[in-house]
């Protein structure tokens, strides 16, 4: 299901961080697969946009990357969530849940 850009803007980082947290270190294609599998293709992200998200997370120190040889024998860049990345993820999840509760209340009141 395609969501609007505005809605996805903050959520994309959260989804990537969560995927890295759940599945450990992964390279780009693995991450796309993980996200698609986990969400049953609800989030249909353009796969190319994953990399800018990863770069931004890396520049914030939330993930790290390292080039390694994958089981296929080819060299891939593996991404790993850092301690501070996990901390930020926990904070944002808490925020998100509060936001969802508030939205739910607000919307049900207005209906």
């Amino acid at each position: 299901m395609p969501f609007s850009k505005e809605l996805m803007k903050g959520a994309a980082e959260l989804i990537v961080l969560q995927a890295l947290c759940d599945h450990g270190e992964s390279y780009g294609y693995q991450l796309v697969q993980t996200i698609a599998d986990t969400n049953n293709n609800i989030f249909e992200m353009q796969e190319g946009t994953l990399y800018p998200i990863l770069y931004r997370l890396e520049s914030k120190g939330l993930v790290t990357s390292q080039k390694r040889t994958a089981p296929s024998g080819k060299e891939r860049r593996y991404y790993t969530i850092t301690k501070s990345g996990k901390k930020v993820l926990a904070e944002r999840l808490g925020e998100f849940q509060s936001f969802m509760r508030a939205m739910k209340n607000a919307l049900s009141l207005s209906v």
Binding site: E47, G48, Y51, P52, Y55
Partner: peptide
């Protein structure tokens, strides 16, 4: 094709960085 529109990828990159 699954990568998406290259312009979107570029814009996404420019926004992120």
């Amino acid at each position: 094709q699954s990568l998406g529109d290259p312009r979107n990828v570029r814009n996404s990159f420019n926004r992120a960085m």
